[in-house]
């Protein structure tokens, strides 16, 4: 995943980086992801998770993906449970503190059917940043002396050539594809993100390709009225897919909070028999619906309205 610099540049130079429309369907966007790719997921925990794109990749039955994300929530369960991924690189992996430890993550990792590769949150962030900067590593003062570092193979400790301080070097991470969900963008991929940015800009700049899903496609004129609000440069973007409620049942800042009842029900469903629970969930919500609106109607209007009311309340200050 740390790529040869000239290869990385060549791949970037080979992309059409012109100001052109990149709008496509979820299904078409899945073709950008190749079996065996390393995919970075934007957002964090249950926030701005690109769930619609993950939903489409699971339905497209991709193979042998590895995944990284700052913090992984229920999407990690579903990636393991669907069999499209058996290796997740992250700093923390469970549905969320209030729901306890993910039983699906436990089941898959404790039986060694899948790997949860643990990095400290900042070191993973620095890996993406190094990737975004086009350099092969970043030094950090964290993680030394811990078993988190001892378990990882891809680290080097050095003495700083200027100060003599001990530093840990973490390798750049240049994902094959980054999946990022935003509140709005134009057809070219100029993306505006409200609220917490997480690691999304570094992801976009580090990745070889970027698939943006958006609640809403707006005009390029609207983007140009407030260019200071654009957080992802269109140059990095390869696909734009408009998907309302594209992070549901997770949250999208200012638009909807998590669908808490659905999240509670999911935790219940996977509690006693995680393998069957996640399989049932995938059947009902991932494989059976014929399209995204049908998925949303299974989540239900009542929960959607409740999540939306809570989400919009961020602006009631």
């Amino acid at each position: 995943m740390t790529q040869n610099y000239l290869d990385l540049r060549a791949a970037t130079e080979a992309r059409d980086r012109s100001l052109r429309s990149k709008v496509m369907t979820l299904e078409k966007a899945t073709e950008i992801v190749q079996d065996g790719d390393h995919i970075a997921i934007g957002g964090c925990t249950a926030s701005r998770t690109p769930l619609a794109m993950i939903w489409a990749l699971i339905r497209a039955k991709k193979n042998d993906l590895s995944i990284s994300r700052s913090i992984v929530s229920t999407e990690g369960d579903l990636l393991f449970g669907s069999g499209i991924c058996d290796h997740i690189i992250t700093s923390w992996f469970s549905q969320g503190i209030v729901w306890g430890i993910s039983k699906v993550m436990r089941s898959y990792t404790e039986t060694k059917r899948a790997k949860f590769e643990e990095w400290s949150h900042m070191s993973l962030g620095l890996r993406y940043r190094a990737g975004a900067m086009g350099i092969p590593f970043m030094p950090t003062r964290a993680m030394m002396g811990s078993d988190v570092a001892n378990q990882l193979e891809n680290l080097r400790e050095i003495e700083c050539p200027f100060t003599g301080d001990k530093l840990l070097l973490v390798p750049a991470l240049n994902p094959d594809v980054a999946l990022i969900h935003v509140q709005r963008c134009d057809e070219y991929g100029n993306a505006q993100i409200d609220g917490l940015q997480f690691m999304d800009l570094d992801l976009a700049m580090a990745a070889n390709k970027v698939i943006l899903t958006t609640e809403n496609i707006v005009s390029n004129d609207q983007i140009r009225r407030r260019p200071d609000q654009t957080k992802i440069p269109f140059l990095t973007v390869d696909a734009v897919v408009e998907v309302p409620y594209g992070a549901a049942p997770h949250e999208c800042y200012g638009m909807y909070e998590p669908f808490f009842k659905h999240m509670d029900d999911y935790a219940d469903l996977t509690k006693d028999d995680p393998d069957n629970g996640v399989a049932k969930y995938l059947d009902r919500y991932y494989y059976e619906p014929s399209n995204w609106p049908e998925y949303l109607s299974l989540l239900g209007v009542e929960q959607m309205l409740d999540a939306t009311r809570r989400g919009r309340s961020i602006y009631d200050v």
């Binding site: 925990t45 700052s70 913090i71 209030v98 609220g195 997480f198 800009l201 909070e257 998590p258 961020i314």
Partner: peptide, 20 residues
Amino acid sequence: PASTNEQRCTRRANMLLSIT
């Protein structure tokens, strides 16, 4: 908030930075 990464964490904050 149920996590340190959701919109409830941002109420009346001074600034929102990236995680890194």
